[in-house]
Protein backbone atom coordinates (compact mmCIF):
# COMPACT_ATOMS: atom_id res chain seq x y z
CA UNK A 1 0.00 0.00 0.00
CA UNK A 2 2.76 2.38 1.00
CA UNK A 3 4.71 1.49 -2.10
CA UNK A 4 1.67 2.06 -4.23
CA UNK A 5 1.08 5.46 -2.69
CA UNK A 6 4.66 6.44 -3.29
CA UNK A 7 4.56 5.25 -6.84
CA UNK A 8 1.38 7.20 -7.38
CA UNK A 9 2.94 10.37 -6.02
CA UNK A 10 6.06 9.92 -8.07
CA UNK A 11 4.08 9.48 -11.23
CA UNK A 12 1.83 12.38 -10.39
CA UNK A 13 4.74 14.70 -9.83
CA UNK A 14 5.35 17.49 -7.36
CA UNK A 15 4.49 20.37 -9.70
CA UNK A 16 1.21 18.78 -10.61
CA UNK A 17 0.32 18.21 -6.99
CA UNK A 18 1.05 21.82 -6.12
CA UNK A 19 -1.13 22.96 -9.00
CA UNK A 20 -4.03 20.69 -8.06
CA UNK A 21 -3.69 21.71 -4.41
CA UNK A 22 -3.68 25.35 -5.45
CA UNK A 23 -6.80 24.82 -7.51
CA UNK A 24 -8.63 23.17 -4.60
CA UNK A 25 -7.48 25.92 -2.24
CA UNK A 26 -8.82 28.76 -4.36
CA UNK A 27 -11.98 26.81 -5.23
CA UNK A 28 -12.66 26.60 -1.50
CA UNK A 29 -11.52 30.18 -0.91
CA UNK A 30 -14.19 31.56 -3.25
CA UNK A 31 -17.20 30.76 -1.00
CA UNK A 32 -15.14 31.39 2.17
CA UNK A 33 -14.33 34.94 1.08
CA UNK A 34 -18.04 35.56 0.31
CA UNK A 35 -17.42 36.15 -3.35
CA UNK A 36 -20.11 35.59 -5.91
CA UNK A 37 -19.54 31.84 -5.92
CA UNK A 38 -22.11 30.71 -8.45
CA UNK A 39 -21.21 33.28 -11.08
CA UNK A 40 -17.52 32.56 -10.72
CA UNK A 41 -18.04 28.82 -10.94
CA UNK A 42 -20.19 29.32 -14.03
CA UNK A 43 -17.44 31.39 -15.59
CA UNK A 44 -14.91 28.70 -14.78
CA UNK A 45 -17.12 26.06 -16.40
CA UNK A 46 -17.55 28.19 -19.52
CA UNK A 47 -13.81 28.63 -19.84
CA UNK A 48 -13.21 24.93 -19.39
CA UNK A 49 -15.63 24.13 -22.18
CA UNK A 50 -14.31 26.77 -24.55
CA UNK A 51 -10.68 25.70 -24.17
CA UNK A 52 -11.39 21.98 -24.23
CA UNK A 53 -10.99 21.32 -27.93
CA UNK A 54 -7.77 23.34 -28.12
CA UNK A 55 -6.30 21.12 -25.42
CA UNK A 56 -7.65 18.02 -27.12
CA UNK A 57 -5.37 18.77 -30.10
CA UNK A 58 -2.47 17.59 -27.96
CA UNK A 59 -3.69 13.99 -27.83
CA UNK A 60 -3.01 12.72 -31.36
CA UNK A 61 0.25 14.61 -31.81
CA UNK A 62 1.74 13.49 -28.51
CA UNK A 63 0.60 9.91 -28.95
CA UNK A 64 2.14 9.64 -32.41
CA UNK A 65 5.48 10.71 -30.95
CA UNK A 66 5.89 14.24 -32.31
CA UNK A 67 6.03 15.86 -28.89
CA UNK A 68 3.94 18.65 -27.46
CA UNK A 69 2.11 20.63 -30.09
CA UNK A 70 3.77 24.02 -29.93
CA UNK A 71 2.69 24.62 -33.50
CA UNK A 72 -0.94 24.91 -32.48
CA UNK A 73 -0.97 28.38 -34.11
CA UNK A 74 -0.94 26.65 -37.51
CA UNK A 75 -4.23 24.94 -36.73
CA UNK A 76 -5.59 28.12 -35.21
CA UNK A 77 -4.75 30.10 -38.36
CA UNK A 78 -6.64 27.54 -40.47
CA UNK A 79 -9.65 27.93 -38.19
CA UNK A 80 -9.46 31.70 -38.48
CA UNK A 81 -9.33 31.46 -42.28
CA UNK A 82 -12.41 29.22 -42.24
CA UNK A 83 -14.23 31.62 -39.95
CA UNK A 84 -13.22 34.57 -42.09
CA UNK A 85 -14.56 32.98 -45.29
CA UNK A 86 -17.86 32.13 -43.68
CA UNK A 87 -18.23 35.61 -42.17
CA UNK A 88 -17.28 37.21 -45.44
CA UNK A 89 -20.22 35.35 -46.98
CA UNK A 90 -22.31 36.73 -44.13
CA UNK A 91 -23.42 33.30 -42.93
CA UNK A 92 -25.02 33.41 -39.52
CA UNK A 93 -26.12 31.06 -36.76
CA UNK A 94 -25.48 27.36 -37.03
CA UNK A 95 -24.91 27.59 -40.76
CA UNK A 96 -22.15 30.10 -40.13
CA UNK A 97 -20.48 28.07 -37.43
CA UNK A 98 -20.50 24.78 -39.26
CA UNK A 99 -19.62 26.45 -42.54
CA UNK A 100 -16.57 27.89 -40.76
CA UNK A 101 -15.54 24.42 -39.67
CA UNK A 102 -16.15 23.10 -43.16
CA UNK A 103 -14.18 25.90 -44.84
CA UNK A 104 -11.31 25.46 -42.43
CA UNK A 105 -11.00 21.74 -43.21
CA UNK A 106 -9.21 21.94 -46.58
CA UNK A 107 -6.70 24.43 -45.16
CA UNK A 108 -6.04 22.45 -42.01
CA UNK A 109 -5.71 19.18 -43.91
CA UNK A 110 -3.17 20.60 -46.34
CA UNK A 111 -1.27 22.60 -43.71
CA UNK A 112 -1.29 19.66 -41.31
CA UNK A 113 0.03 17.36 -43.99
CA UNK A 114 2.83 19.75 -44.94
CA UNK A 115 3.65 20.36 -41.32
CA UNK A 116 3.74 16.60 -40.76
CA UNK A 117 6.16 16.19 -43.67
CA UNK A 118 8.41 18.82 -42.09
CA UNK A 119 8.24 17.19 -38.68
CA UNK A 120 9.28 13.85 -40.16
CA UNK A 121 12.39 15.46 -41.58
CA UNK A 122 13.42 17.02 -38.29
CA UNK A 123 12.86 14.20 -35.82
CA UNK A 124 14.40 14.90 -32.45
CA UNK A 125 13.99 18.66 -32.40
CA UNK A 126 10.28 18.88 -33.17
CA UNK A 127 9.29 21.09 -30.29
CA UNK A 128 11.69 23.96 -30.90
CA UNK A 129 11.02 23.95 -34.62
CA UNK A 130 7.28 23.72 -34.06
CA UNK A 131 7.40 26.78 -31.83
CA UNK A 132 9.28 28.93 -34.29
CA UNK A 133 7.41 27.66 -37.34
CA UNK A 134 4.27 28.60 -35.44
CA UNK A 135 5.62 32.07 -34.66
CA UNK A 136 6.76 32.57 -38.23
CA UNK A 137 3.37 31.54 -39.63
CA UNK A 138 1.61 33.90 -37.22
CA UNK A 139 3.76 36.85 -38.21
CA UNK A 140 3.49 36.05 -41.92
CA UNK A 141 -0.28 35.85 -41.56
CA UNK A 142 -0.26 39.32 -39.97
CA UNK A 143 0.78 40.68 -43.36
CA UNK A 144 -1.77 38.48 -45.12
CA UNK A 145 -4.57 39.78 -42.89
CA UNK A 146 -3.63 43.30 -43.94
CA UNK A 147 -4.04 42.52 -47.63
CA UNK A 148 -6.77 39.92 -47.70
CA UNK A 149 -9.69 41.03 -49.91
CA UNK A 150 -12.86 41.50 -47.87
CA UNK A 151 -16.38 42.08 -49.17
CA UNK A 152 -18.15 42.32 -45.83
CA UNK A 153 -17.46 45.81 -44.54
CA UNK A 154 -18.07 44.82 -40.91
CA UNK A 155 -14.79 42.93 -41.01
CA UNK A 156 -12.71 45.73 -42.43
CA UNK A 157 -10.73 48.20 -40.36
CA UNK A 158 -12.44 51.54 -40.03
CA UNK A 159 -9.51 53.37 -41.53
CA UNK A 160 -7.37 52.08 -44.32
CA UNK A 161 -7.39 48.51 -45.44
CA UNK A 162 -7.12 45.13 -43.88
CA UNK A 163 -8.95 43.05 -41.40
CA UNK A 164 -9.96 44.27 -37.94
CA UNK A 165 -7.87 43.11 -34.99
CA UNK A 166 -10.91 41.75 -33.18
CA UNK A 167 -14.11 40.92 -35.02
CA UNK A 168 -17.23 40.94 -32.87
CA UNK A 169 -19.22 37.79 -33.48
CA UNK A 170 -22.56 39.04 -32.11
CA UNK A 171 -23.99 39.36 -35.62
CA UNK A 172 -22.65 35.99 -36.68
CA UNK A 173 -22.48 33.11 -34.27
CA UNK A 174 -21.42 34.31 -30.84
CA UNK A 175 -22.42 31.84 -28.16
CA UNK A 176 -24.00 29.50 -30.67
CA UNK A 177 -22.99 26.43 -28.65
CA UNK A 178 -23.01 28.11 -25.23
CA UNK A 179 -26.63 29.17 -25.58
CA UNK A 180 -27.76 25.95 -27.23
CA UNK A 181 -29.25 24.41 -24.12
CA UNK A 182 -27.78 26.07 -21.02
CA UNK A 183 -28.64 24.23 -17.85
CA UNK A 184 -29.14 26.28 -14.73
CA UNK A 185 -28.94 24.51 -11.41
CA UNK A 186 -29.64 26.89 -8.58
CA UNK A 187 -27.87 29.79 -10.23
CA UNK A 188 -24.98 27.77 -11.60
CA UNK A 189 -25.06 27.96 -15.39
CA UNK A 190 -23.51 25.15 -17.36
CA UNK A 191 -22.94 25.78 -21.08
CA UNK A 192 -24.16 22.31 -21.94
CA UNK A 193 -24.01 22.83 -25.70
CA UNK A 194 -20.29 23.53 -25.67
CA UNK A 195 -19.68 20.67 -23.27
CA UNK A 196 -21.66 18.31 -25.50
CA UNK A 197 -19.64 19.43 -28.51
CA UNK A 198 -16.42 18.94 -26.54
CA UNK A 199 -17.50 15.47 -25.40
CA UNK A 200 -18.49 14.58 -28.95
CA UNK A 201 -15.04 15.61 -30.15
CA UNK A 202 -13.41 13.69 -27.30
CA UNK A 203 -15.50 10.65 -28.13
CA UNK A 204 -14.53 10.79 -31.80
CA UNK A 205 -10.85 11.12 -30.90
CA UNK A 206 -11.24 8.29 -28.39
CA UNK A 207 -12.77 6.06 -31.06
CA UNK A 208 -10.06 6.97 -33.51
CA UNK A 209 -7.28 6.35 -31.01
CA UNK A 210 -8.71 2.92 -30.26
CA UNK A 211 -9.26 1.95 -33.87
CA UNK A 212 -6.64 -0.03 -35.71
CA UNK A 213 -4.98 3.13 -37.03
CA UNK A 214 -4.95 4.66 -33.58
CA UNK A 215 -3.26 1.66 -32.05
CA UNK A 216 -0.70 1.62 -34.83
CA UNK A 217 -0.13 5.32 -34.17
CA UNK A 218 0.45 4.64 -30.50
CA UNK A 219 2.94 1.91 -31.32
CA UNK A 220 4.76 4.24 -33.71
CA UNK A 221 4.97 6.86 -31.00
CA UNK A 222 6.08 4.59 -28.17
CA UNK A 223 8.78 2.72 -29.97
CA UNK A 224 9.42 3.73 -33.57
CA UNK A 225 12.03 1.05 -34.19
CA UNK A 226 9.84 -1.80 -33.02
CA UNK A 227 6.84 -0.41 -34.86
CA UNK A 228 8.79 -0.18 -38.09
CA UNK A 229 9.99 -3.78 -37.62
CA UNK A 230 6.35 -4.83 -37.34
CA UNK A 231 5.55 -3.27 -40.66
CA UNK A 232 4.01 -0.03 -39.46
CA UNK A 233 4.81 2.99 -41.59
CA UNK A 234 5.97 5.25 -38.75
CA UNK A 235 6.29 8.39 -40.84
CA UNK A 236 2.80 8.03 -42.22
CA UNK A 237 1.38 7.49 -38.74
CA UNK A 238 3.09 10.65 -37.55
CA UNK A 239 1.69 12.64 -40.46
CA UNK A 240 -1.81 11.39 -39.66
CA UNK A 241 -1.46 12.29 -36.02
CA UNK A 242 -0.16 15.76 -36.81
CA UNK A 243 -2.83 16.40 -39.44
CA UNK A 244 -5.58 15.32 -37.07
CA UNK A 245 -4.13 17.62 -34.46
CA UNK A 246 -4.11 20.56 -36.88
CA UNK A 247 -7.72 19.91 -37.88
CA UNK A 248 -8.73 19.83 -34.23
CA UNK A 249 -6.82 23.07 -33.67
CA UNK A 250 -8.90 24.76 -36.35
CA UNK A 251 -12.14 23.51 -34.81
CA UNK A 252 -10.85 24.39 -31.35
CA UNK A 253 -10.32 28.08 -32.10
CA UNK A 254 -13.83 28.32 -33.60
CA UNK A 255 -15.34 26.83 -30.45
CA UNK A 256 -13.21 29.21 -28.42
CA UNK A 257 -14.29 32.19 -30.51
CA UNK A 258 -18.03 31.44 -30.30
CA UNK A 259 -17.81 31.37 -26.53
CA UNK A 260 -15.47 34.35 -26.27
CA UNK A 261 -17.59 36.43 -28.62
CA UNK A 262 -14.64 37.72 -30.62
CA UNK A 263 -12.51 36.38 -33.39
CA UNK A 264 -8.96 37.55 -32.75
CA UNK A 265 -6.63 37.94 -35.69
CA UNK A 266 -3.03 39.18 -35.91
CA UNK A 267 -0.72 38.34 -33.02
CA UNK A 268 -3.16 37.14 -30.40
CA UNK A 269 -2.93 33.38 -31.13
CA UNK A 270 0.85 33.48 -30.65
CA UNK A 271 0.96 32.25 -27.05
CA UNK A 272 -2.13 30.04 -27.08
CA UNK A 273 -0.17 26.85 -27.58
CA UNK A 274 1.65 27.24 -24.27
CA UNK A 275 -1.57 27.32 -22.27
CA UNK A 276 -2.92 24.30 -24.10
CA UNK A 277 0.30 22.33 -23.61
CA UNK A 278 0.38 23.27 -19.94
CA UNK A 279 -3.23 22.17 -19.46
CA UNK A 280 -2.70 18.70 -20.90
CA UNK A 281 0.51 18.24 -18.91
CA UNK A 282 -1.27 19.36 -15.77
CA UNK A 283 -3.84 16.69 -16.51
CA UNK A 284 -1.16 14.04 -16.27
CA UNK A 285 0.11 13.66 -19.82
CA UNK A 286 3.79 13.11 -20.44
CA UNK A 287 5.85 13.54 -23.56
CA UNK A 288 4.50 10.49 -25.37
CA UNK A 289 1.37 9.67 -23.45
CA UNK A 290 -1.82 11.67 -23.45
CA UNK A 291 -5.37 10.53 -22.94
CA UNK A 292 -8.82 12.07 -23.06
CA UNK A 293 -8.89 11.96 -19.28
CA UNK A 294 -5.69 14.05 -19.14
CA UNK A 295 -7.35 16.61 -21.39
CA UNK A 296 -10.59 16.94 -19.40
CA UNK A 297 -8.91 16.88 -16.01
CA UNK A 298 -6.11 19.22 -17.10
CA UNK A 299 -8.34 21.80 -18.69
CA UNK A 300 -10.54 21.76 -15.60
CA UNK A 301 -7.68 22.40 -13.19
CA UNK A 302 -5.81 24.89 -15.38
CA UNK A 303 -8.75 27.01 -16.47
CA UNK A 304 -10.20 26.72 -12.97
CA UNK A 305 -7.06 28.25 -11.53
CA UNK A 306 -6.99 31.02 -14.11
CA UNK A 307 -10.62 32.02 -13.65
CA UNK A 308 -10.84 31.75 -9.89
CA UNK A 309 -7.45 33.10 -8.87
CA UNK A 310 -8.18 36.63 -10.08
CA UNK A 311 -11.15 37.43 -7.81
CA UNK A 312 -9.54 35.66 -4.87
CA UNK A 313 -6.31 37.58 -5.39
CA UNK A 314 -8.20 40.83 -5.70
CA UNK A 315 -9.61 40.34 -2.23
CA UNK A 316 -6.23 39.45 -0.74
CA UNK A 317 -4.11 41.90 -2.77
CA UNK A 318 -6.15 44.61 -4.41
CA UNK A 319 -5.16 45.97 -7.83
CA UNK A 320 -2.71 43.30 -8.82
CA UNK A 321 -2.92 41.16 -11.91
CA UNK A 322 -1.77 38.10 -10.08
CA UNK A 323 -3.87 35.83 -12.27
CA UNK A 324 -1.58 36.45 -15.20
CA UNK A 325 1.49 35.85 -13.05
CA UNK A 326 0.03 32.61 -11.74
CA UNK A 327 -0.69 31.50 -15.29
CA UNK A 328 2.87 32.22 -16.39
CA UNK A 329 4.49 30.45 -13.48
CA UNK A 330 2.24 27.39 -13.48
CA UNK A 331 2.06 26.84 -17.23
CA UNK A 332 5.78 27.30 -17.88
CA UNK A 333 6.77 25.51 -14.71
CA UNK A 334 4.82 22.43 -15.69
CA UNK A 335 6.29 22.46 -19.20
CA UNK A 336 9.81 22.70 -17.78
CA UNK A 337 9.03 19.84 -15.43
CA UNK A 338 7.80 17.69 -18.30
CA UNK A 339 10.86 18.55 -20.39
CA UNK A 340 13.18 17.55 -17.56
CA UNK A 341 11.36 14.33 -17.01
CA UNK A 342 11.07 13.48 -20.71
CA UNK A 343 14.79 13.88 -21.33
CA UNK A 344 15.83 12.22 -18.11
CA UNK A 345 14.49 8.87 -19.23
CA UNK A 346 16.63 8.64 -22.34
Amino acid sequence: MKMKCRQFFEEFGVTRMIAVGFFLAIAIAVPVLHLNTLTLYSQALTRMAMNGVLVLTMVPIMVCGAGMNFALPIGIICGLIGGLISMNMNLQGFTGFFASILFSLPFSLVMGYLYGLLMNRVKGSEMMIATYVGFAVISAMCIVWLFVPIDNLVLRMQMGRGLRKDVVLTDFWAGILDDLCPVTIGGLTIPLGTFLFLFLMCFLVYLYMHSKTGIMMRAAGQNPGLAAANGINVDRMRIWGITLSTVLGAIGILVYAQSYGFMQFYESPKMMSFSAVAAVLLGGASNKRASIFNVIFGVMVFQGILTLSMPVANVLLPESNISDIVRMIISNGIILYALGKGSGKK
Binding site: S125, M127, N332, L336, L339, G340, G342, S343
Partner: peptide, 21 residues
Protein backbone atom coordinates in the same frame (compact mmCIF):
# COMPACT_ATOMS: atom_id res chain seq x y z
CA UNK B 1 21.75 19.53 -17.69
CA UNK B 2 18.46 17.93 -16.79
CA UNK B 3 17.06 18.46 -20.28
CA UNK B 4 20.07 17.58 -22.39
CA UNK B 5 19.29 17.68 -26.09
CA UNK B 6 16.34 20.04 -25.63
CA UNK B 7 18.27 23.08 -24.40
CA UNK B 8 16.73 25.52 -26.82
CA UNK B 9 13.09 24.91 -25.98
CA UNK B 10 14.04 24.68 -22.31
CA UNK B 11 15.79 28.04 -22.50
CA UNK B 12 12.78 29.60 -24.11
CA UNK B 13 10.28 28.24 -21.60
CA UNK B 14 12.70 29.11 -18.79
CA UNK B 15 12.60 32.68 -20.08
CA UNK B 16 8.81 32.76 -19.80
CA UNK B 17 8.96 31.08 -16.39
CA UNK B 18 11.58 33.57 -15.24
CA UNK B 19 9.34 36.34 -16.48
CA UNK B 20 6.62 35.02 -14.20
CA UNK B 21 8.97 34.98 -11.21
Amino acid sequence: NKTRGQEMITGMIAGYFGNGI
